[in-house]
Design a protein around this nucleic acid. Sequence first.
DNA 1: CATTGTGAACGCCTTCACAGCC
DNA 2: GGCTGTGAAGGCGTTCACAATG
Lengths: 225, 225
Amino acid sequence: MADRFARRIPEPTVFRLPVYQRALLALSTDGVPTVSSAELAEAAGVNAAKVRKDLSHFGTYGTPGTGYDVNFLLGQIRREIGLDREWQVVIVGMGSLGHALARSQRFSTQNFRAVALFDIDPAKIGEETAGLPIRHLSELPAIVAGISRSIGVIATPACAAQDVCNRLVASGVRAMLNFAPAILTVPHSVQLRQVDFSVELQVLAFYIAHPEATAGPEDASRSGL
Amino acid sequence: MADRFARRIPEPTVFRLPVYQRALLALSTDGVPTVSSAELAEAAGVNAAKVRKDLSHFGTYGTPGTGYDVNFLLGQIRREIGLDREWQVVIVGMGSLGHALARSQRFSTQNFRAVALFDIDPAKIGEETAGLPIRHLSELPAIVAGISRSIGVIATPACAAQDVCNRLVASGVRAMLNFAPAILTVPHSVQLRQVDFSVELQVLAFYIAHPEATAGPEDASRSGL
DNA sequence: CATTGTGAACGCCTTCACAGCC
DNA sequence: GGCTGTGAAGGCGTTCACAATG
């Protein structure tokens, strides 16, 4: 169904969109004109039925017998994700992770741009990273006030995360990515995602410790054996 | 059922184990003797039924009318995850992200220890970070050979990720965490997890761009994958 | 009487399989 | 013939609700 409205997109589908987008970007760069669902599936590490079902949530983009026009589909997906507009990222907590994120080059190609960096350590204020000055956290409201599509990134220690989160919410930030190992509480109207290095390591440890539990249907991760 | 064997743990349950573990660690530190499933659920950002069902996969650890003994449950979960033994982490790709990961302090408390750092840039070889020298990637097999429970971390650019991945696999590493924005292929016997900053930002962007699609049942206020 | 452990119902995503179209 | 879009079937995790228990 290609109904522009009334759709509810399954969360797993939303997670795969960026992966399709990246795969299509590579195909487009290589000048490939069309892809079949099977080819795109392989590039994204999923199966073909999933690709077709996922895309069908947004529209009828393919041509039976041919596949999908790479550039057209790429444009559609980028528009769906919202990558046709620029997103402004503010990073709070300029430890080594904050610095690494600020320097990350993945912003530009995807229309994400780091626009402000914050910390509370007086020794860091004024320092410049990636062409941006590090400001004191107290300046956050004033800076964020002038931003339309902002995303907050929390790269502080766990103990400061909820406070920083609250300040971001109070300043009007509606989406946040939290790297601190803490469970945060936000209003329903705010999007929050968690990225946790330690949790990932523990999941890996679990599966090594329990080879028999090794999770089920592998779309990707194949090859030898 | 508390059957020690023959269990297949749902993947979502595995992902929540580290979160329970962290919450219990905090409770234990605070000297709290027991928790109910409802309390633990709140701390972990999930609901009580999920906590009980999750724990029931591993054993009968609770006491009706009382709840769970914090220290006992903590010990059981840490043992299940495999945190009762030390895991040795090797990091490949010492850009700013690699450095940040190497300096991360979350290792120690969770029995993960960075033991070797690699890169291919001659200018970086020999440099020291977090008390460890940066070695050339060619030394990887020799170093890893002497390690029992190793986890590989890939923090290279996307174009190098699959090559590094192959080298890690060839060296006997059975679990890897990939930060590069690339879909990797590994043998079934190898655990692979993906952490992707860009994908997370895009998911956030999607949900802001589609408030009506804002995903479903929030336990507390979500954390993510 | 508060709280656990769990079978059963439910809902949702995945996978199948095929009609329809190029 | 090749491939998409999709209803239907299947699989699996979540939630419910309650008997069992200290």
